[in-house]
Amino acid sequence: MANPILPGISEAEQELLYKKLNEYNQGRTSYKEAGAYLVVLPRPESPRYSLWVYSPLPERQSIFYVQDLSTDIHESLRAASSLCYYSPRCILLVEYNAKRMQSKGDDIISFGKYHGHFLHEIFRIDPAYVSWIAYKFTPRIPKQERFVQIAQVYHSVHLDIQKRQAHQKYSTSHFLGKEGDKVKELTLKVLRVRLEDDPYKTTVKGTTPYFYVRQILTLEDPIGNLVTFRTNSRTASRESCQVPATEHAFEPGESVYIASARISCTFTSGNKQYTRLNYVKFK
């Protein structure tokens, strides 16, 4: 299967990305046996990457939509690989195939409280109902037999996600990469902010102290991976541990958009894994 050309990144970045994806897929079951998760490239009517699942189970159309991802390939693959990490299925990057990916209507629920909804919609809000269709519902006509097969595919996706959630009891996050790796296009939410005075720059002129304050941030990405970095004030404050009025003071709950950064180190605290960044460039 040929690797598609990825929009918006250089040839060197693309080569490195495919190398990392091959490393991720090593040891996983062949897509011919277990199926695969597909990260589908954006298209004019859908600017985001999207996650699909291929299964050899149904006889006809065998690719089914799971969810949208990001407009950025790095963030999309990070989200997909984290979500599917404990699945035996590999992850493949593919272009959108209208013939094989458009719904034929055989994944629409035709009965019960979710009548008229797609299985992928109910899979996200009530996976137990999809599991009931997969193994408790009795089909009466051939079309319903295929409907049950599709529900079984979504049930298998639900089990893959449950494996991840079970492991999260012991490790609630994953590293964004290895020390020295460059990361791009991060969307993070501030969890905590700790202020401290920089002991090397803080000084006293005459009788007036000048404090250079550091903001040490703990953040998380959309899938719960924990990140930390610090920002240093460029101007001095007259008060200890107080960000100058001329500079931005981060607040818990605030969204932070990072264009690029480098991983300075990774570490584990308790049952949580953290990625520490430096050389942070904001959007």
Rank of each mutant, 00 (worst) to 15 (best):
A128K: 10
L191G: 03
R28Q: 06
I263N: 01
K136S: 12
V40H: 05
S264D: 04
L226P: 01
P88N: 03
T235E: 14
P199I: 06
T266P: 04
D160F: 00
L188Y: 03
C84A: 12
Y274G: 02
N3D: 11
T29Y: 02
A261P: 01
Q215E: 10
R100K: 14
V157I: 15
Q152N: 11
P88R: 01
P44R: 09
G35N: 02
N97F: 08
I216E: 05
R100D: 14
V40S: 10
G116W: 07
R146P: 04
E45L: 14
E59L: 12
P127W: 01
A166N: 11
L17W: 00
Y200L: 12
E11D: 15
Y200M: 10
Q215T: 03
V183C: 05
V148F: 05
E251R: 15
H115E: 13
E220A: 11
F229A: 07
M1R: 13
H120G: 03
Y114R: 04
I109L: 03
H158G: 08
K283Q: 15
Q14A: 09
L16H: 12
I122L: 05
L188F: 03
V153Q: 04
Y129V: 07
V148Q: 13
V213L: 02
L92R: 10
P56H: 04
T228F: 00
L16V: 10
Q67Y: 08
T71C: 14
S173D: 09
R164C: 08
Y31F: 14
T203E: 13
I9R: 04
V190M: 03
S156C: 11
V190R: 01
K99E: 15
K283Y: 15
F111W: 12
N25T: 06
T29D: 01
A12V: 15
N271H: 15
L191T: 00
K189G: 01
P7D: 07
Y210I: 06
R140G: 14
H115A: 12
E59G: 06
R230I: 05
E45D: 15
P127R: 00
G224N: 08
S30Y: 06
F250A: 08
S87R: 00
K136Y: 10
H174S: 08
L51Q: 05
A166R: 09
H155D: 13
T218I: 02
I91N: 02
A98N: 14
S264K: 08
S82R: 12
H155E: 10
K32E: 13
K189V: 07
S269G: 12
K178S: 13
L226R: 05
A249L: 11
I109W: 01
P44W: 07
Q61T: 05
